[in-house]
Design a protein around this nucleic acid. Structure first.
Lengths: 339, 339
DNA sequence: CAGTACAAGGAAAGGGCTTTCCTTGTAACC
DNA sequence: GGTTACAAGGAAAGCCCTTTCCTTGTACTG
C-alpha cells in the first residue's frame, strides 16, 4: 500500500504538506503544491491508514454497540436508530453480536476498548448473574474512568447512562387486556429465566394478574429460547400440559409467531380458539395471520436515544430515560369462547 | 488509558517483556516477572491499543463486508454464514450498510481499505451503471494490487472471486411452475430496474415464459422498492391495471409479503383467487399465511463460501462458484380458478 | 579454568500518520 | 536600508505497540 511518505516523495514535498492537503487543514498551501500532491494521491491510489491516523490524532470517532444478534428484528430496529444518529454526527459504528453469551459480551467490551472507541452501547437484555454483572461493571468502569462513555438499554444496575424500555409496564398493559377479555387459562411463552427482559415482562404480567385476582402459576410459564422455534417448543409444552388454554402470551413477537405455527398445526383457530399476543411489534407482526396484537416499543428511537446520551457531554451522574410502551390492537386477541 | 509503557514502569520491566507476556510470545519469561506484569495489567486494567498493534504487526486480521442492509433477512443470513467462517478463522468482521446507494458503496471500499482489512466482500446486488461499475472496479483493483483480497456475491463484472447465486435459474424454475399450472395472466412485482438481481431474475422468468409460449409484457412488470412496502405498492398497481391477474411473482419474499397484505385487504384469497410466489426463502416465508412457495437460495452457505474464497490463498485468476437454487413448495401456489 | 552455549531480559528501530515548532523567503513598514 | 511581520513549507517529535538484535549472566563443556 502506498503511504503518506510515498506520496510526499512523488510530489516532491514533505510529509507534513501532504497530510495537510489530504486532511484539509486550515493551513494555507499554494495551489501548485496542492495540485501536485493531489495528482500523486490519484496516481498512487493513496488512502490514509486509519490506524496510523487514530494513533496520531487525539480524538476518537468510532462507537461500538453490543447486541445479541443484529439479524433479530428487535436489534435491527435499535441499530437502525443508532446508525442514523451516528452518521449524523460523523461517527462510525462497530456492531458486535454476543449471541446471548455473557462471556462474549465481556470479550467485546475489551475489544471495543482496544479499538479505542469513543462510546460503548450495550443493547442486549441483562442477565441475572451477579458474578457476570460484577465483572462487566468492572470493565465498564475502567473504561469510563479513562473517558469512555457508556450507555445501556434496559439494563438496571450497570454503569453509564441508560434508556429503559417499559418492559414491566408494557407487559402489564397487555396482561390487562387478556384478563379483561375474560381469559382464565392463560399460558406464558417465556424467554430464558436469566434474562432481565424475561423477569421484567413477567413481573408486569403478574401485576396485571393480581389486579384481576388471578395468578400465573409456574406450570403455566414455559421458558425457551427467545426466538421463533423456542416459541413453538414452549407452546407445544404448554398445550400438552393443559389443553384448556384459551390464551397464550408470548414474551416477544418471534416467539408469538412460533406459537401461531403450532396452533395452526394443531388445528386451533386464532383468536377464536386461542388468543395469542406478542411483544415488541416488530415489522412482520402486522403481516402474519392473524395480525398480531402486541406491545409496541419505539425501538428505532430507543437506539437513537441511547447513542445520543452517550455522545452528549459527560454528565456528572448517570441519566436514565424511560421509554413508553403501548399496546397495538390487531386481530389475534379475542375473548375466550363461551364454555 | 493505560499504555504498555505504564505497565512496564509499574512492573519494573521493559516494554518488550510486557509485550511478550501479554501476547503469549514463545520467548520464555521467568515466572516472577510474568506475575509482576500480570498484576500490573490487572491493576491498571490495561488493554492493548488495537490500532498500535495493527500498525506494528504486519498481518491483517479483519475483513470487511458491504451489504445493502444487514437487517434485511437476505443479508442477515449471508452475514451469519460469513461470521461463522470468520470467527472460525479468527477474523473480525466489519459490516457496512450501503442502503443501496452506489456512492456509499464506493466510500465504504475506501474506508475498508483505510482500515487495512485483509479482504473485502461485496454482498449486495450489482447496479446497471457502467460509470459506477468502472470506478468500483478501479478501487477494487487498486486494493487487490496491494495484496487485498476481494470476493463478491452475485456480481458479474467485478474484480475478485465470486459466488454466484442462481438467480436466473431459480426464477426460471419458479416461472415454470407458474406457467405449468396454467396461469396466463401473471404479474411481476419487481425490484428496481438498475439492480442486476432484478434483471437476472426477470431473465429467468422470461426464459420460462418462452418455453411455455407466453410472454411477460412490460405492463405486467411493476418496479418498486425491494421491500415489503414496495411489494405492496407494486401489487396495487398491477391489480389496478389488470384485475384478471391470477398469479403474482414477487422478486423476493419481502415483496411477496407486501403482495399478500394487499390481496388480503382486497378480499382476494391466496392461492384460490390469486397465486403468489416469492424468492429467497427467508425464514418468515413459512410462517405467513398461506405459507409462501418460493425459491430457496442457501444464503448462509453463500456467505460462508464468499469469505472462504477471500481467505484462501491467492489464486492466479478469479474463481467463480455457482450456487444452486431450488423451489420450495408450500401453499401459496395453485392453478388458476376455472374460468 | 578458559571457552562455549544458551537463557532471560532490554534497547531501539520501525510502522504511518499528525502537529508543533522552526526555518526561510518575501512584502510591508518607517 | 534596516527592521518587522507574516506566509509557506519542512523537520521532527510523538502516538503505542512489536520484534529484531544485543547484552548480560549463568551453566556447561573439555
Amino acid at each position: 500500500m502506498a503511504t503518506l511518505a510515498d506520496v510526499a516523495r512523488r510530489a516532491g514535498v514533505s510529509a507534513a504538506t501532504v497530510s495537510r492537503i489530504v486532511n484539509g487543514s486550515p493551513k494555507i498551501v499554494s495551489e501548485e503544491l496542492r495540485e501536485r500532491v493531489l495528482r500523486a494521491v490519484q496516481e498512487l491510489q493513496y488512502v490514509p491508514n486509519a490506524h496510523a491516523q487514530l494513533l496520531a490524532r487525539s480524538h476518537r470517532t468510532t462507537v461500538g454497540v453490543i447486541v445479541h444478534d443484529v439479524s433479530d428484528p428487535y436489534f435491527a430496529e435499535i441499530t437502525r436508530g443508532l446508525q442514523r444518529v451516528a452518521s449524523e454526527q460523523g461517527r462510525l459504528v462497530i456492531i458486535c453480536n454476543s449471541y446471548r453469551d455473557p462471556d462474549r459480551e465481556l470479550e467485546y467490551v475489551e475489544l471495543l476498548r482496544a479499538q479505542q472507541v469513543e462510546a460503548i452501547i450495550l443493547a442486549g437484555s441483562g442477565y441475572h448473574d451477579p458474578g457476570f454483572t460484577k465483572s462487566l461493571n468492572a470493565k465498564l468502569s475502567a473504561y469510563m474512568a479513562t473517558g469512555g462513555r457508556v450507555s445501556v438499554v434496559g439494563r438496571h444496575k450497570l454503569a453509564g447512562d441508560a434508556v429503559m424500555p417499559a418492559n414491566e409496564e408494557g407487559a402489564y398493559l397487555i396482561g390487562r387486556e387478556i384478563f379483561a377479555a375474560g381469559h382464565r387459562h392463560v399460558g406464558v411463552v417465556a424467554a430464558p429465566k436469566q434474562l432481565t427482559t424475561t423477569t421484567d415482562r413477567l413481573a408486569g404480567l403478574r401485576r396485571a394478574a393480581r389486579e384481576y385476582r388471578r395468578t400465573l402459576p409456574a406450570r403455566r410459564i414455559e421458558y425457551a429460547e427467545f426466538d421463533r422455534d423456542g416459541g413453538a417448543a414452549a407452546t407445544e409444552a404448554l398445550l400438552d400440559a393443559d389443553p384448556r388454554l384459551t390464551a397464550i402470551i408470548a414474551l416477544n413477537d418471534s416467539m408469538a409467531i412460533g406459537a401461531l405455527a403450532v396452533l395452526r398445526d394443531r388445528g386451533l383457530a386464532v383468536p377464536k380458539d386461542v388468543t395469542v399476543v406478542g411483544f415488541d411489534d416488530m415489522p412482520i407482526a402486522r403481516d402474519v395471520t392473524p395480525a398480531l396484537t402486541t406491545v409496541r416499543l419505539p425501538l428505532v428511537e430507543i437506539g437513537a436515544r441511547a447513542i445520543a446520551l452517550a455522545l452528549e457531554a459527560q454528565h456528572p451522574n448517570p441519566r436514565v430515560e424511560e421509554v413508553e410502551a403501548t399496546v397495538v390492537h390487531r386481530e389475534s386477541l379475542a375473548p375466550p369462547r363461551a364454555g
